[in-house]
């Protein structure tokens, strides 16, 4: 298997702020998801891959080349950046055509390529409108179109699903799968686990500029399953319910907290190793005790919390 990307002790600082810290990883062919909460270093990593930034330390090779200011590599890589920026005074077609022309294609060929790419990205009917009038999702699709218009070997997409509605997400995911089936390698970032999961098995987990884990989604999930989740609930009889819940194996701890001032009863914060088993037991126990459970909320289901757990 030839590596698409190899990073060795890769670091990038913005003054005193660490964007990426000692990252060592190898990315193979196909689709790879780059997962991490906001501020994890995903965009920095992708900008280094796309050659927009130069590493502060370490070494990075993409398709066998160092990327920064490497014109030979730019010919083979398509980059869809995260920033919501287009030439608003141009139409989508004019914008993509301009960028394709900068790959050395003639006017007609560039226009045809731009048209095809915008069509693949789902902008058939909107490509002749000015970008200023585009919705967030259409702008996202335009950025994708310019990335794929010149048939790159590698597409690097930074948060490409942000701003898309559910139908749009499905279409873009389908486009990524098509590209991968056609032999294109993709590196796609997201801060939402299920988005990446829907696309690929191979993921890199980043957090605070560091690589936390690399592997298949299954392996990462196994890792996460050991993470005690916090569930908050409000009940009319919190003390009785707390005593009963502590008897279950999956409950690691229960804390009593003041409830809403206008409501009788109180609030329980439960730490559990198995949310599904806990919910089954809670339903039965609450009914048996007539505990009057009013609300139930998982407070740390966010990816940020999961990452916090992984770095502890």
């Amino acid at each position: 298997m030839t590596a698409v990307l190899e990073a060795r002790d890769l670091g990038r600082w913005y003054g005193q702020v660490v964007g990426l810290n000692d990252l060592t990883a190898t990315i193979g062919p196909g689709i790879t998801g780059l997962l991490g909460p906001n501020g994890a270093g995903k965009s920095t990593f992708l900008k280094l891959i796309a050659g927009e930034l130069r590493p502060s330390s370490g070494r990075l090779e993409v398709l066998g080349h160092e990327p920064f200011a490497n014109r030979e590599l730019y010919r083979r890589v398509g980059f869809a950046p995260q920033q919501d920026a287009l030439y608003d005074d141009l139409t989508g077609l004019e914008f993509v055509t301009l960028l394709v022309r900068l790959h050395g294609y003639g006017a007609r060929e560039a226009r045809d390529r731009a048209r095809r790419a915008l069509g693949r990205a789902g902008l058939d009917t909107a490509m002749d409108r000015r970008c200023a009038g585009y919705s967030k999702g259409m702008r996202q699709r335009t950025r994708l179109a310019q990335a794929i218009a010149c048939d790159p070997e590698l597409v690097v997409a930074d948060e490409p699903l942000t701003g898309l509605d559910p139908v749009g997400r499905r279409e873009v995911l389908e486009l990524f799968r098509e590209l991968a089936e056609g032999g294109v390698h993709l590196i796609v970032s997201s801060h939402v686990l299920h988005e990446v999961e829907a696309l690929t098995e191979e993921i890199l987990l980043l957090h605070r500029g560091r690589l936390l884990a690399q592997g298949s989604v299954g392996e990462i999930r196994d890792l996460l399953d050991h993470h005690p989740r916090r569930v908050e609930l409000e009940a009319r009889e919190p003390r009785a319910l707390a005593r009963a819940l502590l008897a279950f194996d999956e409950v690691a701890g229960v804390t009593l907290a003041p409830g809403h001032p206008d409501a009788a009863g109180g609030r329980l914060i439960v730490e559990t190793r198995d949310v599904q088993a806990f919910q089954r037991h809670l339903t039965a126990t609450a009914a048996e005790l007539r505990a009057g459970v009013r609300s139930l909320e998982s407070t740390d289901a966010s990816l940020e919390a999961v990452f916090d757990y992984l770095v502890r």
Binding site: A50, G51, E52, R71, Y74, F79, A85, L99, L102, H103
Partner: peptide
């Protein structure tokens, strides 16, 4: 300022 520089700087052209 418009953050569109990325598109031009990731093309195979002399900057």
């Amino acid at each position: 300022d418009d953050r569109t520089l990325t598109f031009l700087f990731t093309r195979p052209i002399p900057r």
